[in-house]
Structures are given as C-alpha cells and as structure tokens.
Amino acid sequence: MLTTVRLSIIVMVLSISGDLFSQIRNNYFSASHPYFNYMGRVDSSQREYVRFDWPGVRVRFRFTGKELKLYFKGGQRNYFDLIVDEKRMGVFYASGDTVVEIEGIKGKGPHSVQFIKRTEGEMGEARFYGAAFYPEGKLLPWIGNSTRRIEFIGNSITCGYGSEALGRDEKFDPRTENVLKSYASIVANAFQADYHVVAHSGLGVVRNYGDNQPVSVNLATMPQRYSRILDMDDSSTWDFSSWCPGAVVINLGTNDFSTKPHPDKAIFQRKYEELILKVRNVYGSVPVFCLVGPMIDEPCFSYVKEMVENFKLVYNDSNVYFIGIPTELLNDKDDLGADWHPSYIGHQKIANFILPVMSNILKWNY
C-alpha cells in the first residue's frame, strides 16, 4: 500500500517485505552505526535494529544527498514526527515494516534529521533499522548534543496524553497524544536541553488509576518500571551510567489519589522517598523537582510537600524541591484536551509555572 503526502517535499510511505532489507546495499547505514544519535532509552543489543517504546525517543543524524529513506517498524498505535533541516515534515504511522521515502530535499547538505516517537509505550514497540541516502549520500555524525540534560518521570500528563485533542470531552486517541507538546518537552526546549521521558499513563507511585485496591499489585507502578530500557518489557534493564541528567523532574501522585480507595499516607510517602533514593543512587546529588498538579489537589499536594521536607531533614539533602501547581492554573475550556487532560495551551501554562523555579535552582537561563 502506498500513501503519498504532499508537503514542500514528496514523502512516500511504503510497506515492505522482510526480504527487501537483504536487497539494500548502496548508501544504506544500519541503526547500529555510531553516527546515529539516540535521545531516550533504546535497546541496541541487536545489530540489525534498535528498539524502543518510551515517549519522546529520537533518532538523530546528519547526511549528505537529496533523498532520504527511513526503515522502521512503527508499532500497533504509534505515531512519529519527522523533522528535516529544522522543518517538520509530517506525522507518520506504520504498524509493520515500512520505508519512509523523502524526495526533493534542497541541496546536497549536510542535512539534519530527527525522527521522534510521539506516543507512549502502551501504543507498541518501535524498531529503527537504518537509513539510506541518495544519490551517493553519506551518513554524518550528529553534532547537536546539549550539555544540559533533564530526565522526566511521570504519567499521562508528562506523556502529552490528549494534548492535541480539541476539547475535554474527547476520548483518548493515540493520534492526539504528543509528548512534544507536553510541559516536559516545552521545559526542555526552553532550556535547550536534551531529555529523557520515562512516563506511562495511568501509573502512580503505589496505586495505578482506577485500581480497587489502595496499593496496586497486578500492574507495575512507575517506580517499578523506572529501571527498564523498555516500558513494556520487564526483562530489560537500563544502564544508568550511559546518560546522566543535570536535573530530574518527578510528576507522580495524580493516579494514586484521583479515585478511591486512596493509598495510606505513610506507604505513599515511603515509596516516593524510595524513588528519590533510587535517583540518588544512580545519578548522585542532581537536583530533583517533585511536581504535583494541576490535575490533582489534596491530599496528594500536602503529602508530597511534607515528604520533600522530611526527606531534606532525614537525609540532610537540600537538593530536593517541591513544586505545587494549583488546579486553578488551567481553565476548563481552552486549557484542556482529551479526558480533561491539559491541552497544548495548558501544557504551556504548566511549563511557564515550572521554568522560573528550575531556572533559579539550576542557574540555567531560558
């Protein structure tokens, strides 16, 4: 099946058979090539491809030539943004093995490319096989890495759930989920920082959304998934030494308290504290920002604030900070997307609330 999207260039999305890869010889570079740069957690244990499922994972590279082909498998309900020479080319979906063919790129380059996963892990695993460049194009190393790095740990808000929906009454659709329009991406872009997003909708510190028990036992919570390379694969373990952020932002608790039964205060605070200790163990004394809101208020607001203050005293750690985002920050019209989650406008307000605090602590201008 062939789909043609007419933009300033011609983009063709073609389904391919498995044996096509064996036919590729000239100007093809495998995903294992060191010139491909990956922002986000990826499993590179296979020579033929890298696989990933967390939202916001980016494949980044530079090349020479006038034509580009990307070889990938998109996953069941995943969507991707493609940016060439700082210009957004479009949104792509492909559940099977696919080649995205881009023709008519102006000039021989060098050109820059970013291929970005908009959707979260539950939408499926993605695989990137490699890229080909014509005529006689070459792969070049990425040169845009930032010295500033942020890791975001969160739930649906951090994922950008429904951020492109037209209103609060729309139901979830992966086409309207876009982590690039979440507060996490907005904050990182404002600081010109590279960032990782470790987030999954509906998950809490000890209790996931809608669970009929105060502590979830049948589905892993976010702290239990934190050490994974892949969100949906509990056999994978991330190498924390491979990427160390200068700040960590945690936005959890909304799902613990959005429905009843609520978890016990002591259990919630202890497990949240254990997550911060895990961050300390793998990253050292980096600033940790604990966010609450704007989709939840009490008792989560007070519990997290108290936990942060106690953490500072018990562990003699002054580099942990509480940021309480009031529910009044967002109005119930323009600021809300699908299922009452923040819209892109809402996420901009959240980011604007967070940025001055982080800037003051980190001494990062934006």
Rank of each mutant, 00 (worst) to 15 (best):
229 I>D: 01
198 V>L: 14
201 S>L: 07
213 Q>K: 15
202 G>A: 06
205 V>G: 01
227 S>N: 14
217 V>K: 12
205 V>N: 03
219 L>V: 13
189 N>R: 15
210 G>M: 03
204 G>H: 08
220 A>E: 10
220 A>C: 05
190 A>W: 06
233 D>P: 01
217 V>Q: 14
230 L>G: 06
211 D>M: 05
187 V>G: 04
227 S>R: 08
191 F>M: 04
195 Y>Q: 09
217 V>M: 12
197 V>P: 02
200 H>M: 13
234 D>F: 07
207 R>K: 15
200 H>T: 13
199 A>P: 03
209 Y>C: 11
204 G>D: 02
190 A>M: 14
229 I>N: 00
226 Y>E: 09
225 R>G: 02
196 H>Q: 15
209 Y>S: 11
218 N>V: 15
190 A>I: 07
224 Q>S: 02
232 M>H: 07
188 A>T: 00
234 D>K: 02
209 Y>R: 15
192 Q>Y: 10
218 N>K: 13
215 V>Q: 07
225 R>V: 04
193 A>F: 07
225 R>I: 12
196 H>C: 05
212 N>V: 13
226 Y>F: 13
230 L>C: 05
211 D>L: 01
232 M>C: 14
219 L>T: 10
220 A>G: 10
214 P>Q: 09
226 Y>L: 13
228 R>Q: 15
230 L>T: 05
193 A>N: 04
225 R>Q: 05
191 F>P: 09
225 R>N: 11
198 V>C: 02
189 N>I: 07
202 G>R: 09
235 S>D: 14
193 A>I: 07
216 S>K: 01
